[in-house]
Design a protein around this nucleic acid. Structure first.
Lengths: 118, 118
DNA sequence: CCGTTATACCTTGTACTGCAATGTATATCG
DNA sequence: CGATATACATTGCAGTACAAGGTATAACGG
């Protein structure tokens, strides 16, 4: 079970990443993410759809309805150029944070002392 | 500049990690994190102290006042056993998310198709 | 001596937000 | 026919991040 903040922080880049690979729809995105995480990440409807809506509102993805072979309407999403740029920026940010966290996991904390003890 | 969510998500493991390496105080923790991130992460007072207070309230760290050599009072924080367990759990969660994100960065998204197209 | 900077910690209002829960709809399966 | 799976939508509100403003004092340069 991931913390709320970590889930929130990773939702956007993951969705954008999945859509960069190919257009998809909500229900399937949830399945892919479950698969990619070995079942550890189980997003719900209430989680993913508000995020998809917001991404679309921000112009990072676009959507259109398609009638599937079994007559169900599906809302397909596709990443935009702006969305790809945003994904790039997300990757850079995650890289920064991950670099610091790697130091933390490895116990490589700089030995900075208070001025009065230099 | 990190997103709000990413900053929020990484604050606790970073602080716990710094304190696992050795007891420290707020002002110095901020300096260490700035150093570890090459200047990219600049936390403010208003950010770190409420988090330190919450961590203490949850029993993950403890604190005590020490008078420094230049007569300034400093509030030193130290991680507890419980805090070390929490840090371990954080590392596992970050590992899970990072594994999924690595797939995203590498474009390794599973090709799962809707049932009607299998 | 004074203004500035650095060293330290504290508090809080409030704008923002995540998402469980609930809802609608329908195909498939046993 | 009931249960499950396939799909998308909406929202109330509990929770929360942290900038801004505050207090205090040492050190430094002009």
């Amino acid at each position: 079970m991931l913390s709320k903040n970590l889930t929130a922080a990773s939702t956007r880049p993951i969705i954008l990443g999945v859509l960069k690979q190919g257009r998809s729809y909500g229900y399937l995105i949830i399945k892919k993410i479950k698969d990619m995480s070995g079942g550890k990440m189980e997003w719900s409807d209430g989680m993913i759809y508000p995020v998809l809506h917001k991404l679309e509102k921000e112009g990072l993805i676009v959507s259109d309805w398609v009638m599937s072979k079994d007559k169900r309407p599906r809302k397909y999403y596709e990443i935009t150029e702006k969305g790809k740029l945003e994904l790039q920026a997300e990757q850079e940010q995650w890289s920064q944070v991950t670099a610091v966290l790697d130091m933390v996991w490895k116990g490589q904390i700089p030995k900075i002392l208070p001025d009065a003890e230099v």
